[in-house]
Design a protein around this nucleic acid. Structure first.
Lengths: 115, 115
DNA sequence: CTTGAATACCTCGGCAGCCGATGTATAATA
DNA sequence: TATTATACATCGGCTGCCGAGGTATTCAAG
């Protein structure tokens, strides 16, 4: 479907935080996972994700550590695993709420319903 | 609630087109209406809307004409009324579809549901 | 063995849209 | 008379997305 990039904007941060809710992940994994889970309707680019992760880290919303990939997955390969911080969880809650209000508002206006 | 501007981005165009679906409107009216209908959750700025309207016009998605405000509303006042064109309606359909797919995707990722 | 694809990380500059600030002019209200 | 509301507009700053490009490793195919 190939969304206009303007729609994508602003959704990257909350989605990243949401992905890290349950377990640490590495960047490349997030890209593939988002693209797969949305069947390519969202098509994340590495050129977007990596700078975003660094930004979130500098804001203290995620933390990163290098580690070996599990031996049964990709033995001998190094990956940079990101985890969400306590501060990040607070921000996630805020952003989720924000998204929900926002999407309700837009839906109401677009689909003509009352708010 | 005061959304991050990044979320707003990309939603302005489809909303403008949707507003014009039923009747012509003037810019100032759209700003007030959106702010009121969303109870200030969306807070449109004139500095965003006017350039957007001009852009849409140059793309042939809307047309504009100056006219007197109705005598029972604001007698003696000039307004610039925008209407959606046929091309604009096609674009509206596309954008509505796009938004719907997009918001479903984001919702699924944010709220953890399956797609 | 060498080539190519997949994995996994990264940077940089261009671009486009939102917004704050600012400006103009008129009508209504205090 | 001064202020507020209506109604239009522009402009530059900022920020984030993306295309293009780069490095290095692992693994399968030729």
């Amino acid at each position: 479907m190939d969304f206009s990039q303007d729609l994508i904007r602003g959704s990257v941060v909350p989605i990243v935080l949401a992905l890290l809710r349950n377990r640490p992940m590495y960047g490349y994994e997030m890209v593939k996972l988002v693209n797969a889970r949305t069947k390519g309707r969202l098509e994340w680019k590495e050129g977007t994700l990596y700078p975003t992760l660094h930004r979130l880290q500098s804001l203290g919303l995620v933390s990163a550590r290098w580690a070996d990939a599990p031996a049964d997955e990709a033995p001998g390969r190094k990956r940079k695993y990101y985890s969400i911080t306590r501060k990040g969880r607070t921000e996630l809650a805020r952003r989720t709420q924000e998204w929900s209000q926002f999407s309700l508002s837009v839906n109401a206006l677009l689909l003509g319903g009352r708010l």
